[in-house]
């Protein structure tokens, strides 16, 4: 089979017109995807910038000082760095055993449960938060850490259940059985065989959950503001109350954890763990 694959790719060598079209498409996609980010990034260092120049006429680091010396922005960074890891931790405790059960056990209502988790995605977030708010008033959860954490965890349940479930299901059972036959205890099989093999999928789920919590703005604003402001909720008011450049600096700061985590897990995400998790089995 390999012998036929190689000539296939060479046989249909693209003509110059096709190459030109492809090149144009790549250029347009680059401008479309990367352009806005670069343009925003430049604003973070611009002193003055007049239309229609393509670069600022003078540069400055002033806006970085404005952001770094602002107390309320610092608090927002702290809050975000507290809520996101807590969300991942709690969500893991709640969802990972369930993910294992979905992959390895057959039980009454299994399929219904899997699809029921999907309800969080189908109901519009804004509408959901509005309805949750009335419940939170009644339960005295407004403006509490617990309230904000519940909102954040709700946004991670689908990732934390579906993606690890697919990862657990993909661990060959023959390996687990071989370990059992060799005398390993059930716990030992879980920690030495199943978990390490499912780890890439779990990692992808954790990264996605961290970012979901880190990016969550609408619900946090409704339930947490003004007591608990996180970086994205702060971004909403920044955009309205500060000059463009401050929002640009803040954007770069807000993007750092996302880019770092995504780069770390990029291989696994592109490797199909994310896609695999969204097919109910």
């Amino acid at each position: 089979m390999t012998a036929t694959v190689t000539p296939r790719r060479r046989k249909s060598g693209p003509g110059p017109a096709v190459m030109l079209l492809v090149g144009l498409f790549v250029l347009l996609m680059t401008i479309f995807i990367i352009g806005p980010l670069v343009w925003l990034g430049l604003h973070a260092f611009s002193e003055s910038w007049s239309y229609p120049n393509l670069l600022p006429s003078s540069w400055t680091m002033r806006w970085w000082q404005v952001v770094l010396s602002d107390k309320s922005l610092g608090v927002a960074v702290q809050n975000s760095l507290f809520f996101a890891p807590m969300t991942v931790l709690l969500s893991s405790i709640i969802c990972l055993p369930a993910a294992y059960a979905f992959a390895r056990h057959e039980f009454w209502g299994r399929r219904t449960f899997l699809i029921g988790l999907f309800a969080t995605n189908a109901f519009p977030k804004m509408g959901l938060f509005v309805t949750i708010a009335s419940l939170f008033y009644a339960l005295n959860l407004m403006n509490t850490i617990t309230g904000v954490l519940i909102i954040h965890i709700l946004g991670t349940v689908v990732f934390m259940t579906w993606i690890p479930a697919a990862a657990f299901a993909a661990v060959p059972r023959s390996l687990e059985e071989a370990a059992r036959d060799a005398g390993a205890s059930k716990l030992r099989v879980l920690t030495s065989v199943t978990l390490p093999m499912a780890f890439p999928g779990i990692l992808v789920a954790m990264v996605m959950s961290f970012l979901a919590s880190f990016d969550e703005a609408q619900g946090t604003y409704l339930v947490g503001a003004p007591v608990f402001m996180t970086m994205p909720t702060q971004m909403y008011s920044l955009v309205l109350n500060y000059p463009n450049q401050v929002a640009a600096v803040f954007s770069i700061l807000l993007a750092i954890p996302s880019v770092a985590l995504m780069t770390a897990a990029h291989k696994h995400i592109a490797g199909g763990h994310l896609a695999e998790g969204f097919q109910i089995k």
């Binding site: 059960a101 056990h105 057959e106 965890i153």
Partner: peptide, 15 residues
């Protein structure tokens, strides 16, 4: 087995 059902319960209850 009921253990699967029980393990799967927490996220479902949360939702």
């Amino acid at each position: 087995r009921p253990v699967g059902f029980l393990l799967a319960l927490p996220p479902v209850l949360l939702i």
